[in-house]
Design a protein around this nucleic acid. Sequence first.
DNA 1: TGAGAACGTTTTTTT
DNA 2: AACGTTCTCA
Length: 738
Amino acid sequence: MTQSPISSPSPDYLDRLNPEQREAIETTEGPLLILAGAGTGKTRVLTTRFAHILLNGRARPWQILAVTFTNKAAREMRERVAALLGETIDGLWLGTFHALCARMLRRHAEYVGLTTGFTILDTDDQLRLVRQIMEPYRIDTKRWPPQGLLGVFQRWKDRGLTPAQVTPAEDTDFAAGHARALYAAYQERLRAVNACDFGDLMLHMLEILRTQPDVLAQYHRLFRYILVDEYQDTNTIQYLWLRLLAKRPEGAPNIACVGDDDQSIYSWRGAEVENILRFEKDFPGARVVRLERNYRSTAQILRAASGLIAHNADRLGKTLRPGSDDARGEKVQVISVWDSDEEARIAAGAIERLRAEGHPLSQIAILMRAGFQTRPFEERFLTLGLPYRVVGGLRFYERAEIRDAMAYMRVLVQPADDLAFERIVNVPKRGIGAAGLQKLHHTARGIGAPLAAGVLHALETGALKGKQREALATLMDAFERARALREREGHVVAMEMLLEESGYLQMWRDDRSPEAPGRLDNIKELLRAIGDFGTLEGFLEHVALVTETEDQASSDTVSLMTLHGAKGLEFDTVFLPGWEEGVFPSQRSLDEGGLKSLEEERRLAYVGITRARRRAVILHAARRRIYANWQDSIPSRFIAEIPDDAIEQSGQALQERIQLTARNSVFANGPIRGTTRPFRKLTDVREEIAAPLPVGTRVFHQKFGYGTVLEVEGDRLHINFEKAGEKRIMAHFVEQVS
DNA sequence: TGAGAACGTTTTTTT
DNA sequence: AACGTTCTCA
């Protein structure tokens, strides 16, 4: 029990908050920027603020718009608000940008030429669509892969640009300036099949808010308060969307954004740190509250992290201070190892010791730069029998059999879903290849109907013959009956029957490959999962928006995940492997992003260290296998940037090399050339750097013939071949000719 | 049309 | 090395 001040007794939920936190919660009116360093109680502030507004009667639950970045964060917030209020509340506008936009767009779909039942496409569908769009343009898909084009669209969408808003000047990256036209065609096609891709959820909603004043006014009336989490990771379109909703005609907006410029790690997804840096300009009169007291990590860990991030320029400036004076804790360990196998061995060994001392495995995480780095750890853990889980690895809903089954589901729900129909029309094999599909498309277009209707038409008119006719008749009949069954017996039974009668389940039963039984299990699991939802539509919506795997957080396992995936989490002990130049910071960031992307890598390192409550262990290996061959590596510059007295170095391998970081070595100005031979000395690497194929060199390639080097990108060369045009080639595939 | 061979690329990070 | 895509032939 706390003693209440005489003047204003403060409610329980404001107990044990520090003054800054209280200010962030109690400043309900007007724009507010909360700069919250790692581990400073950000989530607590956000949820308490939410509850505070409700408990003071300032708004009804549905009048608060609360935006998070991940579904996980949304769920956590929902739970904690419920705990504070002592009850669960439905109908909250709390979710990710995309989930909230999807909900809005279902209400207003007609303004952008969709109907409320529109489909949200997955990446497979998007790619198939892009390929179709590209076809008539006769674009060399070798040079201009569909994924690349999709990326261009994505970036435009991230910036809130509709096809009409893209200027010719913006359209230079791809296929000689055809991207704009392709973008328009792509959007047109999406509309025609009543579908949205992920970016459209935001793009369409922004368009509606911009062009429909009464819709905008409706939301202005509705949302009295806006809360935004992870503001540093908002991209342009999210920013525009927020600003539109926040700037009501009456008075200053009650918008509170929480963020940390030091944890901005999503610029590759279009995030603009500038959004947070500019907040006070965007919302004049904004209060700024800094949360700097860290209650998570030991003083040593904070010192290491702060020292590292201090190497970044352009910061709003925050200093993490330990929440309590005691417990300086262990220094950050830096261990030098020989290769990635030893790295895994050492980490696993340390984990076994911790386990023997009674540390729960659930409080241990291994955080890496990229997903593929989990391999050696998984192997090691398997041989030792250490329980682990890969968080955010291959996701359930990305498996082929699940996507197939869901495509069946989509056609069931919406017969006009051409993309889903295309996916399953020949799975299992029904004798419909590329040519057959073309014919079906033609028939459908002829009667101005979707594919499925086209098939029915073709069956009636007798345009289909033999095996094709029989197989498609069976398929269409299965859909027909499944729809009827859905009415009578519910969607689970209908789906079961559909997958059975269409031959899909039998296809896997007949499959003799070792994965087949697992796939059948997965489908069983899918059928179970849809039982948790009232309707198939609800289930599809959930799957489209919630990409994460159900976490079995209850089990006591070590977590393996990417640094990006670890944001917002904390563990007692954190292992940070692969701190080597070219791995972390990644080669790509060194090659193309310049200083900006190097700083982002540094923020990622900062995020990594600050995940640890008590113990952080950084590892780096002397050599690592890249693709098929070994490559020498040197310690990450980030290791040298951590204050010496905050770290403790160990490991027999290459003790002396620790000082030799990129910052003060011969490699400072360029990437390291790949090596194919193991056990290479540094001097050898130096020689290779000294003798590359410089720009202008005439070279010969086995397949492409003669050409000239246009550009050197690490161990890749950008070459203009006389016959084959411009290509990017690994340097060792070409030889110099004089 | 489909199976197998040959070829090329891959490793950022996610809603 | 491992995977996915395209190519080639039956």
